[in-house]
């Protein structure tokens, strides 16, 4: 720990609202990047299967693999990662690891059959791989929100809406992946996807507003501080610039001004939407502040 980080830690420990820096800052940024990649991978696999887009499945697999590597790079001891399967009964991080392993193994079995004939073993590999990958995809779509909700120290994350929000992010990421693949390879129903993007984006926005409103009105002091950090504090630039402008205003403008769903427009909407999701996750993670340690008011002696 260098002097600057040591001084920052001491300053954090002294502050009323200690910002969490474990996930989202320094090496912790890898955690957000990992969640971002894995979230898109899960959503892309789900929607790629739904729309029969083999190239979207390939993209999902690559993003899942990258996400896994980024997660490993974040760990203090990546060589012990296999041990993370041990505590799946109560740990969402463990469940996520199991899910991602299942997804990648299933992808290895399932994907070759989408491009080449595998002979007699083909149908069995397709079935086993397909089931494994879909189970893994559903797990990785779901686990992230729950991993944050299980964090009792960060009241802003400790919300029942957080898992729903992360599922919606994954679906939005899946649509973004399909749009990008459609722009490059074709073969996806562009108009339907753009309508779906509008619908899912509306759901993401609604969930996010509900979460902010719930924290600001019914949350404790730490949750309220997190809302302040997002709207008017140290992560507001990421939120307004990244989430609202890049992730929402740019795609909305493209949708409003483009009459036909051209490849370039689809690709741009997909990229901007995915980038917006990344910044939204980043601002939510960075806005987390720890519960302050205080003596309950009823135990105070009058001064």
């Amino acid at each position: 720990m260098d002097t600057q980080r040591y001084n920052q830690l001491i300053s954090d420990l002294r502050s009323d609202y200690r910002p969490q820096r474990e996930w989202g800052e320094g090496k912790g940024l890898l955690m957000v990047v990992g969640h971002f990649l894995v979230g898109i991978a899960g959503g892309a696999w789900l929607l790629g299967t739904l729309y029969g887009s083999a190239w979207t499945l390939v993209l999902a697999f690559v993003l899942g693999g990258l996400g896994g590597l980024v997660h490993l790079a974040f760990l203090g001891h990546p060589e012990r990662a296999v041990g993370m399967m041990r505590h799946w009964r109560t740990s969402w991080v463990s469940r996520g690891f199991v899910g991602l392993s299942l997804f990648l193994l299933g992808g290895v079995l399932y994907l070759p059959g989408q491009f080449v004939a595998l002979g007699a073993a083909g149908p069995a590999l397709n079935l086993i791989g397909g089931v494994m990958a879909m189970l893994g995809a559903l797990t990785i779509i779901g686990y992230m929100g729950f991993a944050y909700t299980a964090s009792k120290a960060i009241p802003f994350w400790n919300s029942p809406l957080h898992p729903a929000l992360y599922v919606a992010y994954a679906l939005r990421g899946g649509i973004a992946a399909l749009l990008i693949v459609g722009a490059v390879k074709g073969g996806v129903p562009a108009e339907t996807l753009l309508k779906l993007w509008i619908g899912v984006t509306a759901v993401v926005g609604l969930f996010f507003i509900m979460e902010l409103q719930g924290a600001a009105t019914g949350g404790n002091v730490a949750a309220k501080q997190s809302v302040h950090e997002i709207l008017n504090g140290r992560v507001s630039m990421v939120f307004y610039g990244g989430t609202l402008i890049v992730g929402l205003a740019v795609p909305a403008l493209l949708l409003a001004t483009s009459h036909a769903a051209s490849a370039a427009v689809m690709a741009l909407i997909g990229i901007a939407s995915a980038a917006g999701d990344f910044f939204m996750k980043l601002s939510t993670v960075r806005a987390g502040v720890y519960l302050p340690l205080v003596i309950p008011a009823r135990h105070h002696r009058r001064a």
């Binding site: 474990e22 955690m31 299980a150 964090s151 120290a153 519960l291």
Partner: peptide, 16 residues
Amino acid sequence: DKCVGCHSCMVACPYT
């Protein structure tokens, strides 16, 4: 010897 350094316990502890 088992800890992987994922930090999840740190954000779970209400007592920091």
